[in-house]
Design a binder for these strands. Structure first.
Lengths: 198, 198
DNA sequence: TTTTTAAGTAAACAAACGTTTACTTACTTA
DNA sequence: TAAGTAAGTAAACGTTTGTTTACTTAAAAA
């Protein structure tokens, strides 16, 4: 049997992400994707059921899965609060800095009903994404180190400013002066920690 | 001359927002929109140049323009920092609470290259959106009331957690218990203020 | 009341869409 | 080395896309 060409599989994913980041999710078509990857449209259907399946797998596995790994690298839920948050902030910043395409699709995941639904279903079926982070926050709330908010609120307070700052980083990428440096990120991290601590 | 039917114009906008919020920007088509609005596709082209023009005007005028008005209602850039931020947080929360469709399209604006570009061009052509807020932040930084970050950083720190919390509000809207109440929003606002103040 | 004119419609356009059919290629295994 | 088989291709399927053409409607202006 002829084996699957992994290079082609990778090309499909890479070029799909590229089109989404450069032209938008609403302008990704199977034919355009096939053409840019120099393959037949049929080939995509060997690897993915249909367009929705491709988008969902890109979003869940390629984007969120890879991001989860990156955030948790060197993180331990037993770390003290400040160290843990700083670690995750730096991991997130460094990961997305060199993965803008993943960042864009992740952002689309917050708007697109299809990706939203897929995210919820995946959390139910295979356990929550970022589970160690959830436990970390719960522990610290229980230990009265941080304010006693629901986990979703903690997540919003701690991580959404960071994701917004990463967007600003991309805005300044091709300009003479980058204002979002690692130093600024760490200063912002301190501000967030100060705000959330009891 | 036969006058433009304003009800039809309003229907186009309302139903476009509805489709975007329920099925996603990537599933909005002119024919679907016309059908659901009970008009001919041609009628849309009397009021808008093309699909992109419709999307951009929806995003800039209907969503951002209306949101800007709502945020600034009762806000004065001369307010002291805490009062001003609290005012804007409550205005934002109350506005989007009853305008989920506007919220969804605003979120799409952070991903979609088309809307992103339109936003930047509009800021250059007609002056920045949320200009009073920018001046408010600059003043407070200059007066050493808050940390001396670039304005974009202040904006990320202060407003992105709020927008994320509004998303959580919608997630809990049809569940037995709403966790994102006005009380929680105000507590989060205090946390943010505490973090950013010098 | 009649004329004028833009608003609005129904139907259609070519192009692009997601997907499939019919066929060829290339690698495994017997 | 030959047979078997899934991977891969080129071309096409029927639909839907954004947009336009040709026509009708309705209200302001004369």
């Amino acid at each position: 049997m002829r084996p699957k060409d992994l290079e082609k599989e990778e090309a499909i994913r890479a070029i799909a992400l590229k089109i989404i980041a450069e032209e938008g999710l609403e302008n990704l078509s199977m034919q355009k994707l096939a053409k840019e990857a120099n393959i037949s449209p049929r080939t995509i259907y060997i690897k993915y059921e249909n367009k929705e399946d491709l988008l969902i797998k890109l979003f869940i596995d390629e984007v969120l899965g890879t991001y989860e790994k990156a955030v948790l690298e060197g993180f331990d839920e037993a770390m003290d609060f400040e160290t843990g948050v700083r670690k995750m902030w730096l991991n997130t910043f460094r990961y997305f800095k060199s993965n803008r395409q993943a960042y864009v699709l992740m952002q689309y995941g917050k708007s697109s009903p299809l990706l939203n639904k897929a995210f919820k279903e995946r959390n139910i079926k295979e356990g929550q994404f970022f589970a160690p982070v959830h436990r970390f926050l719960k522990q610290n709330a229980k230990a009265r180190i941080i304010k006693n908010f629901p986990n979703e609120v903690h997540r919003a307070l701690i991580f959404s400013p960071l994701l917004d700052l990463i967007n600003e980083y991309f805005e300044y990428k091709d300009r003479p002066k980058q204002i979002i440096t690692e130093k600024v990120i760490l200063e912002c991290c301190e501000a967030i920690i100060k705000g959330i601590k009891l």
